[in-house]
Nucleic acid binder design. Structure first.
Length: 236
DNA sequence: TCATTAAATTGTT
DNA sequence: AACAATTTAATGA
């Protein structure tokens, strides 16, 4: 599972993103001057519920788990944030404070755009606004799909859905067709037990949708993965 | 470079 | 949840 990631600096990373490449030279210069980089170890916090949002953040490489904690201390995971993901625009525009936790699932490098720079970009760049709208829209579709699957579908189907979104090229442009992800990690992200993940992955592999190797998963048919479905057991 | 060992991941009950 | 089997990574000659 050697991934030969060209280790871009944060400044190099932002200008080659979908939004960064559409900025004017002037805008690029300011973004590159303002961007910061942070390296997270496994278990480190990328963002914490309740804290003020100081930065809009992007995953250069690595994986972050997005989750919330209930009053009783139980945690619920929504999704992973994979390479190329940008997050925090929701809280910046809406509530000023993080409304979820971000925990690194492995060594992860994060690019950080100061809030003031983000707001400036919203003011001066129509291209940036379009990107943010697209981002919000994609995430909305993602979460609607999650809720629907959570309520109506079998656990194996939820695993497929969860994986399909993780390979979404709009939200996670840095993820190719291969993602270093153990079945245990998939279980955490999908909110199911590891044996369910194991069973689900073998079903998907039979249908030629994915290929699994030791420590990583390769998607062969992304549309097929979205459509994958096994009959849910009827509920009360 | 190869063999041995340890660690992580996966399959199964 | 626990166990066994398999794969990879690390170590050292």
């Amino acid at each position: 599972m050697k991934h030969y990631v060209t280790s871009l600096s944060a400044a190099e990373f932002v200008v080659q993103t979908q939004w960064g490449s559409q900025l004017t030279l002037e805008q690029c210069k300011r973004v590159q001057a303002d961007v910061r980089e942070r390296k997270l170890q496994v278990g480190d916090t990328a963002c914490q519920m309740g804290n003020r949002v100081e930065y809009w953040k992007g995953v250069i490489d690595g994986l972050i788990k997005m989750s919330v904690v209930s009053h009783g201390g139980r945690t619920s995971t929504f999704t992973g944030l994979a390479s190329g993901a940008w997050f925090g625009e929701g809280p910046v525009l809406r509530s000023d404070t993080w409304d979820f936790n971000g925990i690194a699932m492995r060594e992860t490098r994060v690019a950080m755009i100061p809030r003031s720079t983000f707001e400036w970009l919203m003011d001066v760049s129509p291209a940036f606004n379009r990107f943010i709208i697209g981002q919000l829209n994609e995430r909305l579709a993602h979460f609607i799909s999650l809720i629907e699957a959570e309520r109506l579908e079998a656990a194996e189907t939820r695993v497929a859905r969860c994986l399909a979104w993780l390979f979404n090229p709009v939200l996670y442009p840095g993820v190719g067709s291969r993602l270093d992800l153990s079945q245990q990690e998939v279980a955490y992200l999908a909110g199911v037990s590891r044996p369910i993940v194991s069973k689900a992955l073998r079903l998907m592999a039979q249908d030629g949708l994915v290929r699994m190797q030791y420590g990583y998963i390769q998607v062969l048919d992304l549309p097929g993965l979205h459509k994958f479905r096994i009959q849910p057991s009827p509920r009360a």
